[in-house]
Design a protein around this nucleic acid. Structure first.
Lengths: 225, 225
DNA sequence: TAAATGTCAATGGTTAACAATCAACGGTTT
DNA sequence: AAACCGTTGATTGTTAACCATTGACATTTA
């Protein structure tokens, strides 16, 4: 099925716009800490470094601002955000709200394919040892939660999630650099949610998400102090 | 307090960027139906009409896309969205989720100033006759609900709300063109919420919001068929 | 006649140059 | 010494021209 012609057909466009290639690159540098909180990102410097004009850089920065990873100040240049405890509280209270809507909508819509994906991710979580890469932790964590948003089939909810997802990535990355415990807790935490999904109990599911994200929030805050 | 010097100090910038002046103008034309759903908005045409280059037009369209009022297609030009029943269902389920978070957070944070604003808006709703302008209906409706988001003091929640707020405006505008009943129901609906706010009962408040937005959703759907 | 291929007008994407903004800093004045 | 003012470097915002994409339509081929 996935022959070379299929791949060509799936390619939405011949070559992506330059800004669309810049966004993931900058996002990853910010999330991973390669571009540190507070780092200054003048358009001209980025343009020179990435060997393109300022136009596509400018559009990429607008997108990163939308994702909450940079702040733009008129005539002052972009700056990587530094997330405070208050920011974390905002991110997690909004995340809880969105994820409760996601799981409520996902429960009657999850397909065998969705569940298979979740189980596969759970398997990878279980197999993780203590020397995991921080990036792996957030990749697996998102792979699990993203399924709920996909199954919810709600484009505006997904967009709202995408708007804080990069900030969550940034938080999880730095947390797992500071303290590696994903291998100890990730499987059990997410398996519990998976089991409740099987039960189809909406109330239990929203409570499980509440418990899970509240725990995650507290681990984030604790890791910073 | 609000002398001319205060106003100068509050002015964030000498003159706003061109894209920042274009956004409200286009938004209003879309919301009011002056630019109809499906209308085609090539950058070049807008630039000529507004007497500026394509750069600021482009940035304005990116912002309107973020607000869900236009879709951008590569090399095909922007197009005003046409909202389906499915879109309305998405908008209102997400709105309910956001507004429940807003009112939960607002309850312990509402100041006398917030409450005075709400009461003033309620007074204007009560005074409305059957020949109200559709724009007035959505202005008052938003003036009321926006207070909750302000009192919630949650920048990411506010941003998520701003992302669907323009679409709600579009829906409310066309609904009140089609059927003028705001003067009959707006005061009672919102007064009920206001009274529960006074009580400080969070459970009652989220239930009231649920009831209010579910009713609003059904009136929207009914007005279309 | 249907499928494949080529053309093209409409449109966005990118570029480099120029204009406008703004906060920091140094000099001047009180 | 503190306040005020002008300058300036760093940076974004805007412009017009040029390059690339794309889907509809016309033409060619089997």
């Amino acid at each position: 099925m996935a022959g070379p012609l299929d791949q060509l057909a799936r390619q939405a466009e011949r070559s992506p716009a330059l800004w669309a290639t810049v966004v993931p690159a900058l996002r990853q540098m910010i999330v991973s800490g390669a571009l540190a909180p507070g780092a200054h990102l003048p358009e001209g410097e980025l343009a020179a470094a990435l060997e393109m004009s300022r136009g596509p850089i400018r559009e990429a920065l607008i997108e990163l601002e939308r994702e909450g990873l940079v702040v733009l100040r008129r005539h002052r240049g972009a700056q990587v955000i530094a997330l405070t405890d208050e920011d974390i509280e905002e991110i997690y209270t909004l995340r809880l709200s969105l994820e409760q809507l996601a799981i409520t909508r996902a429960l009657p819509r999850l397909t065998d394919e969705h569940l298979a994906t979740m189980d596969d991710v759970l398997e990878q979580m279980r197999a993780l040892g203590p020397d995991y890469e921080p990036q792996t932790a957030l990749d697996l964590d998102f792979a699990f939660h993203d399924v709920l948003y996909q199954a919810a089939a709600h484009s505006r909810l997904d967009r709202a999630w995408q708007q804080i997802r990069s900030q969550v990535a940034m938080l999880l990355h730095s947390r797992h650099v500071a303290r590696r415990d994903f291998h100890e807790i990730a499987y059990a935490e997410h398996k519990a949610i998976r089991d409740i999904i099987t039960s189809g109990d909406t109330t239990a599911a929203t409570e499980a998400i509440n418990h899970h994200l509240t725990g995650a929030y507290h681990r984030l805050i604790t890791a910073r102090h």
